[in-house]
Each structure stands twice: as structure tokens, then as C-alpha cells.
Amino acid sequence: MLDFIPKIPLADWVNTAVERIQDTFEFIFDPIKEDFGGFVESTAEWLSQIPPILVIIIVALMTFFVSGKKFGLSIFAIVGLWFVYNQELWEQLMYTFTLVVFASLISIIIGIPAGIWMSKSKWAQAIITPILDFMQTMPAFVYLIPAVVFFGIGMVPGIFASVVFATPPVVRFTNLGIRQVSAELVEAADAFGTTGSQKLFKVELPMARKTIMAGVNQTVMLALSMVVIASMIGSPGLGDEVLTALQRSQEGPGFVAGLGIVILAIIIDRVSQNLNKG
């Protein structure tokens, strides 16, 4: 009964499409893979070469000032980072951090303008909303496949998959934040003769700042949550340690590396939340 149409070759179509894209855009993908990949790698290496004690001091100072001159977070950062160093996971931490920073930055650079566009145009909203839904509901593993096809293995495909997975919140929150600006303030801006971009930069974005920063925070956290998955396509770092431990059923090292991720997550989360308040 149900077989009146033979199996639709959707998977084949997707294969062909991906191949096409790969061939057509080789001139983009290849330089990204080579040049950007090289840049990311050397950033991570450079970070790993900074003496850990220096990094710990800088982070401690930064958390101290960001959290309004309270000691709690700084103490946590000092102890947490020292622990990671003590477990000989310092280099992995630097790689993971690099991955998260690049993925977050790219997500934000794409996400905020997309959110702005969405807030300004009914059409953009109608088109972008289902795309975001799709991006968020699709299991994150699925993004690994095109990531590998386009960018091979290493840090770049990891960043690519993380960006796809982590961008939606910042887009949504930017859109929401701008749409929530009170009608009277928008009217006030209009009544004083603002142009579109004056209104955006002088009224809407400052008013939406807190909401947008909440989106940024979520985006960063999602990017961090991708590090284990990204390690499956060869992104080095703490995620890779977890994955290796998993493959070898070594609870101990797996737990320790996982703890490292948690420490990084807490520091990044608190810092980005406090930036929001300030």
C-alpha cells in the first residue's frame, strides 16, 4: 500500500549536492582550510607557549575586575586552572579555549547582523526562523559530515560545526531584544529625525544590549558544548581526551578531562554574564 512510490533517493541527492558545493566552492573552502586553519592552529600553539602562571594571573585579575572586585570567581579560576595544569591538560585546555573563542566570535559576527535584519523585516523573520529551528533541532553530529567534506579534519571543521550549532541563540536574542524596545522610545528616536542606522546604533542596540548579551552567553556555552563532538573530527583539546577515554573505557582520565571542560565553562559563563551586567 505504502510502496506506490519507490524510495525517494533524498540521501543520494544530498550527496550529489554536497559534492557539487564542494567542487564549486573549492576556491573558498581550500583557503579557509589552509590559511584560517593555520591561523587557528598557531593561535592555539602560541597560547600554549605562554607560561601557565602568567595566564592564571591574567585570568584571575580579569575575573576580579569583571565580577565587580569580588574574590570568589578569581579564587575559583586560580584553583581550577591550577588543577588543569596539575593534571597535565594545559595544552588541551588552550586548544579547547581557542576553538570556543573562534567559534563564538564567528557565531556572533554572523548572528548579530542576522538578528538585526530579522528584527527589521517581516520577510527575513519568516525565512530565518525555520532555518534556526532546523539548525537547533538537527542532532549536532549531523553537522560533522558536511564539516568534514568541506574542510577535512582538524580544528576548522570543528569550528564550522560549532558555529552552525551555536549561532541560533544570538540571532534569536538579537531579534527579540530589538523588537522589545518600547514603542515610545522608538517613536522618540523617529520624532527627533533619526535615520535608520542612527536609530539602530543610538537607541535600539543599546536598549537591546542585555538581551543580546544573554544570547551571546548561550552561544558561547553551546560552542563549548560542541568540543567533545568536534573532537570526533580531529579537533584537539579537552574534548579529544574525553573521547579517547571513552573509546578505551578509562573512567578516570575521562572524568578529569570532563572536569577541565566544566572549569572552563564556569569561568567563561561567569565572565560573559558579568560583562552583561556592567
Partner: peptide, 10 residues
């Protein structure tokens, strides 16, 4: 120039 009921201040 306009003055608003709920002030409309930034």
C-alpha cells in the same frame, strides 16, 4: 520636537 507621556527618555 515632541514630548512624550511616559517621558521617552533613554
Amino acid at each position: 520636537s515632541m514630548v512624550f507621556q511616559k517621558f521617552g527618555l533613554f
